[in-house]
Amino acid sequence: MNAIEKVGTYSMLMVRTFAIPDRWRMFFRQYVNEIQKQGLDSLAITVIISMFIGAVITIQMVLNTANPLLPDYATGLAVRDTLLLEFSSSILCLILAGKVGSSISSEIGTMRITEQIDALDIMGINSANYLIMPKVTAFMTVIPCLVIASMFFGIFGGYCMAYFTDIITVHQYVYGIQFMFNPFFITYSVIKGVVFAFIIASIASYYGYTVKGGSLEVGKASTDAVVNSSVIILLANVMLTKLMLS
C-alpha cells in the first residue's frame, strides 16, 4: 500500500470510529477501562523517567553554566524550560508512543487475526467505534495529567539534586525555577500532549485494525505503529510550536 492509500484508509477508519456509540453504557465501560490501562499504568514510568531526566538536566546545566558571567538562576530556569517546553510533552509522548502505541496496536491486531473483530462486525456492531474510540478518547483524557505529572516530577528530580548534593544550592535552584515563569508554557505543553495522544492512539489503532495474516504481522504492525507515530509526532511538534510560540 502506498502512502496516499494509507492516509485514505486511515481517514475512513477515523470517520467510522468517531460515530455515536451503539450503547453509551458500553462505551463508558470501555473508556474507564482504558483510562485505567493507559493512564494509571503509564504514571509510574512517567514519574520515574521524569525524575531522572530532571536530575540529569540539572547536573548538565550546572556544568554548562559554570561561568561567572551567567547568573545563579540560569540552572533552574534552563531545567524548568526544558521540561515545560519539550520534555514533558514531546519526549514523554515519544516514550509513551512506544508503550501505549505498541500495546494498542498489538491488542487490536490480535483481535483482528483471531477474528474477534469479525465477530463484532457480524453482531452488527461498529467495531471501529467500539474498539478505537474509547482508546483514543481515554488517552487524550489522561495525557494532560501525565504531562503535568512529568513537569512536576522532573522539577522535583532537579530539586532532589540540589538538596542531596552540593553542586547547586536549593535556594539558587528554587529561585531559578520561579524566574520569569510563563504559565502559557504549561498550556502549550498540554495542548501538544493532547494532539500527540490522538496521533499515538489513532495511528496504533489503525495499524492494529488493518493487520492481515498472523502473529508475525501483529508484531510488525506494532513496530510500524511506533515508528510512524513517532515521526508524525516530530512533524506535528514543529508545526504546533511554530503556531503557538511564534
Binding site: 483471531t114 474477534q116 457480524i122
Partner: peptide, 11 residues
C-alpha cells in the same frame, strides 16, 4: 449468529 474457526471469544 456466527461461530468462528478459532472461536473468537473476547479474551
Amino acid at each position: 449468529g456466527m461461530l468462528f474457526q478459532g472461536s473468537a471469544l473476547f479474551d
